[in-house]
């Protein structure tokens, strides 16, 4: 079963995404802050990480960096989710090792498409 990790501090968003993913047959792990996200990623090694940028303790960018630097987790595709939609934000995300970027608010369809696109697209 494919595991997806959600890193998001808004509980409602977390809840609806979890619901959607579980309905679609994914196993979901979640956390609401950056520090835990790094630890959790290393512990559980999910197949995909959905990462919000504005999260407490450590922001999404730093989390991504940490994940990439950790040999255990560096292959995991990371999809940034953010209200920030500017080109610089997207570019920065990509530079830090993000595989994709989805802008809030997104529809269920958008999200699923994005996940499908990035699953299996493991980074070398």
């Amino acid at each position: 079963m494919t595991t997806i990790m959600i890193v998001e501090d808004e509980k409602n968003i977390r809840m609806s995404v979890r619901m959607l993913l579980q309905k679609k047959g994914f196993s979901v792990i979640e956390t609401d802050n950056g520090v835990d996200a790094v630890k959790l990623a290393q512990d559980k090694l999910p197949q995909l990480i959905l990462l919000d940028i504005l999260i407490p303790k450590m922001d999404g960018y730093l989390v991504c960096e940490a994940i990439r630097q950790n040999p255990l987790t560096k292959r995991i595709p990371v999809v940034f989710m953010s209200a920030k939609s500017q080109q610089e934000d997207q570019r920065r995300a990509r530079e830090l090792g993000g595989s994709d970027f989805i802008t809030k608010p997104f529809t269920t369809t958008d999200l699923l498409e994005c996940i499908q696109k990035n699953l299996g697209g493991e980074r070398p």
Binding site: N12, K23, A83, K104, T107, T108
Partner: peptide, 22 residues
């Protein structure tokens, strides 16, 4: 503001999608 708006809008959009689906 846009960030503050977008956050609840996200869960709303998701929730509506899910409801419709379910």
């Amino acid at each position: 503001v846009s960030h503050e708006f977008r956050t609840p809008l996200t869960s709303m959009t998701m929730a509506i999608g899910l409801l419709k689906d379910q």
